[in-house]
Design a protein around this nucleic acid. Structure first.
Length: 548
DNA sequence: ACGCCATGATTCC
DNA sequence: TGGAATCCCTGGCG
């Protein structure tokens, strides 16, 4: 039984060395209170742990010591040091999930060009390939236009949701209307130009509104899929709502039988509404009669959630689905039956979203819980492996809506993508979670957008189909961002119109207070942040330097 | 202001 | 296969 001893030795020695390193070169952590006597005690505790090994009960001594809250070992501590989060070194990197380093030293940090992992085998850019693509996309511009990144909280912040925002949708024709859904199933309609013009429909659904899509024939109505097991079709003017389908007509009989609806999309050509549930099934409804067409079809592993559906914008027969079985799948809806997928795109973890590119429909972008965005450059080429994987922090646990990378529908080169970031960064002493703009053709971080007033994570983001506007959902709040107009040298005219309703009033007033009281501090930080927010491409190292 | 709790969904064992 | 554990969350309560 030399093995446990060996383990003990290794662990203690590594800790000793790490703690001594911490004093010197490693800037990072460690309370200097870690005196020698304590270390001895820690070693004892360590041995105890190893001896008990089966972790029946924690030795009481542990609770007396400062111990890492993640791995319960002594000698280091995970957690915030000011606005900087220190990872537990015993765990794999929180960003890229590889062992041997932490987020601080991760080569993928801040999604620079290092963040791009070429797939193996790499999709070579043969000239044949290029011609092929050129044929498919005759209108592809020769030179990629400069991205316009909405970066400045402009006209409004709104808080009418009483629970976290789960999805956003811009009106297809009215430029100023934003729809939002929340965890409670409420549907918000907001005219963000007339900031105070807002409506909340609370009786559309009874729990999480997972996805919504405007009707292709009537721009005044929106379809929504909810965890209450129904699809709603709501008139956004009147709030009149019709339920198209109820998967739980007999009510609640426990979680094993309760059906929830997640993925939703519309096939305009055939007038179909497609939805998918938490058991792996797809349902199709006729948008004209609002009746079901055919029975449920198993499109993902039985019993797993299908979180996303997307109809190809150019070939409406093509359907892309994704879900908790770690796959995104491509389907021909004319021949749709269990196991008939055209292609299965494997991922290492749950796939939060899968989208065709918005204009040509020839690219695929997925967001997976393994902290990687995946890009397939052409659905007409080989789909065996993604053309690129981009490491980006967007895994999550509780309380957060799943992150989804969203295309910029205006970008003719179909390479600009927006996605919120999970891990925070220390920006002038404030831990903020930026919203990232990523060029998926090369994996570069085009811009990181943040505001010192927004300290919560923004997992829900959507770019406007026509204007340079970004809408974000962060916790219960909605934000509208626009590019800062450089010609106007207006003095910091950030008008924070925090509109609230319901019981969130407390918070908003608290927020207002802190804005006032922190005046100098926040204002200054805000200014500095805004000035340097956008660093287009060029050198990522410079950006890093600027940020720190 | 602080600490504690619940929460959800997934992964791990 | 079920049940335990779970790192940067959010909000509410005492």
């Amino acid at each position: 039984m030399g093995f446990p001893n060996l383990v003990t030795e290794r662990e203690t020695s590594s800790e000793e060395s790490s703690s001594s390193e911490d004093e010197g070169e490693n800037i990072v952590v460690d309370d200097s209170e870690n005196e020698e006597e304590e270390e001895e005690e820690e070693e004892e505790a360590q041995e105890e742990v190893v001896e008990t090994k089966k972790r029946e009960k924690k030795p009481i001594t542990i609770s007396l010591k400062k111990v890492c809250k993640v791995c319960k070992k002594a000698g280091h501590q995970a957690g915030f040091q000011g606005a900087t989060y220190i990872d537990c070194p015993m765990k794999p990197c929180f960003l890229c999930k590889m062992p041997g380093h932490t987020t601080m030293t991760c080569p993928h940090r801040v999604a620079t060009e290092h963040g791009v992992l070429p797939a193996s085998p790499r999709n070579a850019r043969h000239s044949v390939n290029f011609v092929f693509e050129r044929q498919l996309r005759p209108n592809v511009p020769a030179i990629k236009p400069a991205f316009v990144v909405p970066d400045h909280v402009d006209c409004g912040v709104i808080r009418y949701h009483s629970r976290r925002v789960t999805c956003l949708e811009f009106h297809p024709t009215n430029n100023n209307i934003l729809l939002s859904g929340d965890k409670k199933g409420q549907l918000g309609v907001w005219d963000f130009i007339k900031v105070s013009e807002k409506t909340v429909y609370s009786s559309v659904h009874t729990c999480i509104l997972n996805n919504m899509r405007f009707s292709s024939v009537n721009h005044g109505t929106i379809y929504a899929a909810s965890s209450d097991g129904t699809i709603s079709c709501t008139d956004i003017e009147t709030g009149f709502s019709e339920s198209l389908m109820d998967l739980n007509p007999n009510g609640w009989h426990g979680p094993s039988s309760w059906r929830m609806l997640y993925g939703l999309d519309i096939n305009a050509e055939k007038g179909l509404v497609l939805v998918a549930d938490n058991f792996g099934f797809l349902y199709m409804l006729d948008a004209r009669t609002n009746g079901r067409t055919g029975g449920p079809i198993l499109i993902h592993k039985k019993g797993t959630k299908v979180v996303g559906l997307h109809i190809n914008p150019v070939q409406p027969e093509l359907l892309l689905s994704c879900g908790n079985d770690h796959f995104a799948r491509l389907w021909d809806i004319r021949r749709l039956e269990a196991g008939s997928s055209i292609c299965d795109l494997a991922h290492r973890r749950v796939v939060n979203s899968a989208y065709f590119s918005p204009q040509t429909g020839s690219k695929i972008l997925t967001t997976s819980q393994d902290n990687r965005l995946r890009v397939w450059d052409s659905i007409f080429g080989s789909l065996d492996s993604p053309s690129r994987e981009i490491v980006h922090s967007h895994d999550f646990n509780r309380h957060l809506t799943a992150f989804r990378a969203e295309w910029d529908p205006k970008d003719p080169s179909e390479s600009l993508v927006v996605i919120g970031r999970y891990i925070s960064e220390n920006y002038n002493g404030v831990a903020l979670h930026p919203i990232d703009f990523i060029d998926i053709s090369n994996g570069q971080l085009v811009a990181e957008v943040m505001d010192p007033n927004i300290t919560t994570i923004s997992p829900v983001n959507k770019l406007h189909p026509r204007d340079d506007v970004l809408a974000s959902g962060s916790s219960r709040s909605l934000f509208i961002w626009r590019p800062k107009d450089e010609s106007e040298h207006v003095e910091q005219k950030v008008e924070w119109k925090i509109l609230t309703c319901g019981k969130s009033g407390n918070n908003s007033s608290r927020k207002g207070d802190s804005d006032d009281s922190d005046d100098g501090l926040l204002g200054l930080k805000g200014k500095k942040l805004k000035r340097r927010r956008i660093q287009i491409k060029s050198s990522q190292k410079d950006q890093r330097a600027l940020v720190l």
